[in-house]
Design a protein around this nucleic acid. Structure first.
Length: 381
DNA sequence: AAGAGGTTCAACCGCACAGAC
DNA sequence: CGTCTGTGCGGTTGAACCTCT
């Protein structure tokens, strides 16, 4: 049998809280403190579930909550942290004073994913479908010890919730709950922002390389090495290799060169020269992605919907801002030069000779609490 | 003005972990 | 050790609100 419900279902009021209930709850917590949520409703004289009381307090009644719109700075921080941490809303929110995980989560789902959807739609680009590698090769969710993130939980195969079909366009991305996929999704976004996809012509196995050194890429599995992502077959499905994404994160090239392109025989050359025309006909050479250019600022991404009418000639997000914080040394693949302690940890490998492999493997390992805190501190630095 | 459709966000749900027993 | 309880997390829902026609 399943576990007992957190509270009696009968006689429990649900739905919106009234001002009177808020007052009762606030008064009770102020005089008795937080905690003991299960017994709180009874003691306080509320006909509410303990969890509901806790949620109301945490998300609404707490005195230290910050009201008002998310500021651009907060937005940028959310994007930055989400690109690294994934849907770790509570962790993200904990570094935004006065903001709750619910608030951040809602903001992400309503604002930022909508922008992503809008961009894709405006380019008439097929939905990006993640094609994750086998589980054994998948980058695990960064996690702290203890509580397991929902995204790391087993798939819900036992009871698929019947969902009311909503007409909203703000549906979350298919795999948005995996940290690396958040990065991948943003990669796709960036591609779309760049207009690259629209210029690819018939989709037939384009490869966007990410690694700079031939043959030493982390992945040794599906597809060829050095493939960051590919568009397969007739369905226009993009598939990604997380290890190459990590390589991208660790790219030691010029920070401006976010993307590299495969120039025959697996040879890679940096892209991102802003002198390259984006979306021009010359960019449609089959198999080569020559039209990507670096983006300049997170703000420009966040303001994309205000710019979309400008024929896509504006500059977009500078993903260095998102993931190259630690790349300031421009030598992240070189452990010797990764003086930043967090980056040293990220790149930690006992055998420096195999760092190219080791760093990617370390990326996949779970974080302990200290490591995670260090990562967050580094992100915020 | 009114209805339809879209968006926001408070609240709920189920699940998993920690700790007590 | 296993079980139970308390708690926190992330995903999801749906009423309220907003915008468009």
């Amino acid at each position: 049998m399943g576990r007992a419900p957190c509270c009696e279902k009968v006689g429990i009021k649900r739905g919106r809280w009234t001002a009177e209930e808020d007052q009762i709850l606030s008064s009770y917590i102020q005089s008795n403190g937080e905690g003991s949520w299960r017994s709180l409703p009874k003691n306080a004289g509320l006909k509410r579930c303990g969890k509901s009381c806790r949620l109301r307090w945490v998300n609404y009644l707490r005195s230290d909550l910050r009201r008002g719109n998310i500021t651009p700075e907060e937005e940028e921080l959310v994007v930055k942290m989400h690109s690294t941490l994934g849907n770790r809303w509570s962790l993200i929110a904990s570094h935004l004073p006065g903001r709750t995980d619910n608030e951040i989560k809602n903001y992400w789902n309503s604002h930022l994913s909508r922008k992503l959807h809008y961009i894709r739609k405006s380019h008439n680009v097929p939905a990006v479908t993640m094609n994750p590698p086998p589980t054994s090769q998948r980058l695990p969710e960064k996690r702290r010890p203890g509580r397991t993130s929902r995204s790391a939980m087993k798939p819900k195969t036992h009871k698929q919730k019947t969902r009311k079909t909503k007409k909203t366009s703000a549906q979350p991305e298919p795999d948005a709950n995996v940290a690396i996929n958040a990065v991948v999704g943003q990669e796709a976004l960036m591609m779309e922002l760049s207009g690259a996809e629209a210029d690819l012509g018939p989709r037939d196995d384009y490869y966007y390389g990410a690694c700079h050194e031939r043959g030493d890429c982390c992945n040794t599995n599906n597809n060829n090495n050095n493939n960051l992502m590919s568009i397969n077959g007739d369905n226009g499905v993009l598939s990604f290799d997380e290890h190459d994404i990590i390589d991208l994160l660790l790219d030691e090239s010029d920070p401006g060169n976010v993307f590299t392109s495969s120039v025959g025989d697996g040879e890679l050359s940096p892209l991102g020269d802003s002198t390259l025309a984006r979306g021009s006909s010359e960019t449609s050479n089959l198999g080569y992605l020559d039209c990507l250019q670096p983006c300049r600022s997170v703000e420009s991404f966040l303001n994309y919907e205000h710019q979309v009418n400008d024929a896509l000639t504006d500059e977009f997000i500078d993903w260095e801002c998102v993931w190259q914080e630690g790349n300031k040394s421009n030598k992240l693949c070189d452990e010797k030069e990764a003086s930043d302690p967090v980056m040293s940890w990220l790149l930690n490998g006992d055998d420096e000779a195999t760092i190219g492999q080791t760093n990617c493997e370390k990326f996949g390992e779970p974080l302990d609490h200290d490591e995670e805190n260090a990562l967050v501190a580094w992100l915020l630095s």
